[in-house]
Simulated scan of single mutants.
Amino acid sequence: MKKTKYALVTGASRGIGKAIAIQLANDGFNLFLHYNQNIEKANVVKKKVESIGRQAEVIQGDFNSNEGIEKFIIEIKNLLIQSEIISLHTVVHNAGHATSNGFGEVGYNEFDQLFNANVKAPYFITQSLINHMESNGRIINLSSGVTRIAFPHMMVYSMTKGAINTMTFTLAKELGEKGITINSVMPGIIDTDSTANWLHTDEGQENAKNMSALKREGQPEEIANVVSFLASEKASFITGHNMDVTGGSHL
């Protein structure tokens, strides 16, 4: 009998995280679904996962503070123990914040929030859950194509994702002996509810067309497909890799 695999997806209530959760459910995973504010949307994803025939647990977590990160870690650990689940196979760090404030506009609070959610949470969640993971497990970080493109109006956000890329290849070396792979996925412009305000305009469409070699924006499912591959046995010898999924932006 094939063993059921379990995955944690942070930021799973909408956008790319939602698409990833649904794709992993289709791949046969049971899910732990993290959300921050909107439990209604998280429950929609939970019902979708269950309609596929998989199990799902919804977990709230505010990654803007040390206390929120620690509270989430305690809760996910308790769920793993209470559910008598020995280990996680896949952890997908998707939750995060973005900003369009430039170099001279980001204040202390916004700077801290961006690094808390985008860097500190993935780091400490990974640190805390590593002993709860299978020996052939997968850690998949959502980074961004902005790490190789100079966007001054997104400088601090780009810095956080640069840190994630560094964590990815460095931690891959650290965890290699355990058989755990760690990779990052770097999306480009993706059509989600968080980008809709500017992307669904004539100017936004033109910008997306001009940036991409494919002359279009990406879809959340296209990012989910890459995560699905990295979580699969087909990607068993790929680790420490920052995978560009920008549709050829700024080539």
Rank of each mutant, 00 (worst) to 15 (best):
D244F: 07
G176N: 09
D112Y: 08
Y108G: 05
I130R: 00
L114H: 10
S249Y: 00
L33T: 02
A25H: 04
N43D: 11
N26I: 06
I69V: 12
G104F: 07
G102A: 09
G15W: 04
L129Y: 00
K161A: 06
L171H: 08
F32K: 01
G162S: 13
E134A: 15
D27P: 07
N183D: 06
I85V: 15
D244G: 06
F103Q: 04
I190P: 00
M133D: 03
N165V: 05
I190Q: 00
F124V: 03
G248L: 05
H97C: 06
V146A: 06
V58C: 09
D27S: 10
I86G: 10
V49I: 14
S232R: 08
L8M: 07
E50Y: 08
R216M: 05
G218E: 02
S194A: 15
H89D: 14
E206V: 00
V92N: 06
G68T: 04
T99L: 14
E84Q: 11
K215R: 13
S13P: 06
N136W: 03
E221Q: 13
L171D: 06
S51R: 10
V45A: 12
E233Q: 11
T147G: 06
D244K: 09
A7W: 01
G188Y: 00
A208I: 00
F237W: 11
H241D: 10
F29D: 02
D193Q: 12
K178H: 14
P187C: 04
K234W: 08
H93K: 12
N66Y: 11
Q113F: 07
D62P: 08
A172F: 10
E70F: 06
E221A: 11
E50P: 05
L175S: 09
L175H: 09
I180W: 01
L175K: 05
R14N: 11
S51P: 02
L24T: 02
G218Q: 02
K41M: 14
T4L: 15
S194I: 14
